[in-house]
Amino acid sequence: MIDQNKCETCPVHNTGNLKRLGINMDKFDFVVALSGNPNTGKSTVFNNLTGLKQHTGNWPGKTVTRAEGGFEFNKNRYKLIDLPGTYSLLSTSTDEEIARDFILFGQPDVTVVVVDATRLERNLNLVLQVLEITDRAIICLNLIDEAKRREIEIDDRALARDLGIPVIPTQARQGIGIPELLKSIEDVVTGKFICKPYRIAGSSKGLTKAVENLTEKVKNQFPGLPNARWVALRLLEGDQKIIDAIRSGEISGIVKRNSVEENIVAV
């Protein structure tokens, strides 16, 4: 037992158990979403894990649709979804909506947020928004080599402690840190690691109450809608799109469109 534990901490062990499945994603056990700001290396991480050759480009907005691929790790089969890069989840362009709707309604088992280590503060805006709507997330702190080049040092353990989720430093272009990322994904989806995501404090009592009140109503109206709380919050903010989606009943359609089982393979 002890020996095995030693093995598991060794990176070689982890990549040894990685089987890149390409576009073969039948009978997956877990769904992993890859999100992050534009141009942080999501597609590079995606290719690294799936063995696919999704085109990567050094410019923001390269991925405008979501790509899907599979991998097997320690006998578990994973389906990995590469989402378009977004700065926030509150926006209106098509590519950002695709990302947002999937994290919200696609119910991934874990969302890996790829973060540019050289631009941590701006990237954290998205991380915090992701943590508002999901319990299970991992930060893939990418481009640490570039951060080093610019003499930026990041205390990843402090970050992990503050955010309540695993933070894995990586250099995806060189494949560094990918084994640790895999291990972390496994820990989170199997419940070995329980995330205690940091939630934005300071929302007033009145607001909290109003959100709770409205969430109930949304749940009554649309039973089984994941993230009813988020929908309630957007309603409260007066988001016209959400209001329209409620009015037409299309809100359940969004959920259906994003449910993973029905997806067309788009690589």
Partner: peptide, 10 residues
């Protein structure tokens, strides 16, 4: 959070 975790050298 970022300020706590990031140290930028001169």
């Amino acid at each position: 959070i970022a300020n706590k975790a990031v140290r930028v050298k001169e």
